[in-house]
Amino acid sequence: MVGSQSNSNPARIPALGFRALALVVLGILLMWLDNREHHLDAVRRVIGVAVYPIQIVVDTPARAWSWMRDLSASKNQLQLENSRLRTEALITRARMQELAALKAENDRLRAMLDAREQVRGEVRVAGIMAVDANPYRHNIVLDVGSREGVYDGQAIVDASGVVGQVIETGLSTSQAILISDPDHALPVVVNRNGLRTVAFGTGEYKRLSLPFLANNADIQPGDLLVTSGLGGAFPSGYPVAVVDQVTRLPQESFAEVTATPAAALDQVREVMLIWVRKQDPGADDE
């Protein structure tokens, strides 16, 4: 009688509990596969195609806004900007000449030291889509994907410094982690004296932390940190951050050092992707 009553109950959803349980188990299975070995990258890519139109639609207002702004800029403004850019290009070109000479000198010195050939990179400009990604991470969505040759772990910089690296490539978009993410660590070296350390994200866009510096380490506010090239993802020598605070407590063995990222991580709209390729392929086995 109880059974027949519950069967005739119009509010009863058939096999609800079973379906929910099956889906939860399926979810756990998927997460396990995803977390362990990244078996599901292909699956993600396929589903990503379905999400892509939504990303495009969400991105459109921001894009339209900047287009409108370009359109409505007065001729005067454009002329001003043009002359400013011309000056900038001239200065940059002059610097490039200097750089070429330095590079030649550097190559010569390296050859003398018998050091390994430096890693060289190819670059490409990518736009950041005005789409918010993972709420638990400092992520950005780029408008290029595996079609353009983007790969996992690829380095991203902007005009003033290192921004982050790609963590997931879709077909025509990709996700990147910023250096300010709490789970991101970046091997750096102090430009002044070659001191090596690791810069961790803190979850704040304007602060990195360097937890592994001994109390007597030679580091001071104003020091520039550049990528060391260790770890392989980033080519060496790109500016990362400037040290802004060094707190040395006598009872602690490590100093508390924080730094401000060189790139304006929360304001960038366009970034550069770097394709790292080693010049001598045989040098990997060291």
Partner: peptide, 24 residues
């Protein structure tokens, strides 16, 4: 639950979270 699960998977892909996290 079925629709919720599917939308959760889409959300996981869109946000780059663990596949199945929002779905579950």
């Amino acid at each position: 639950v079925g629709i919720a699960w599917l939308i959760g998977i889409l959300l996981d892909v869109a946000q780059g979270t663990l596949l199945g996290q929002h779905a579950l």
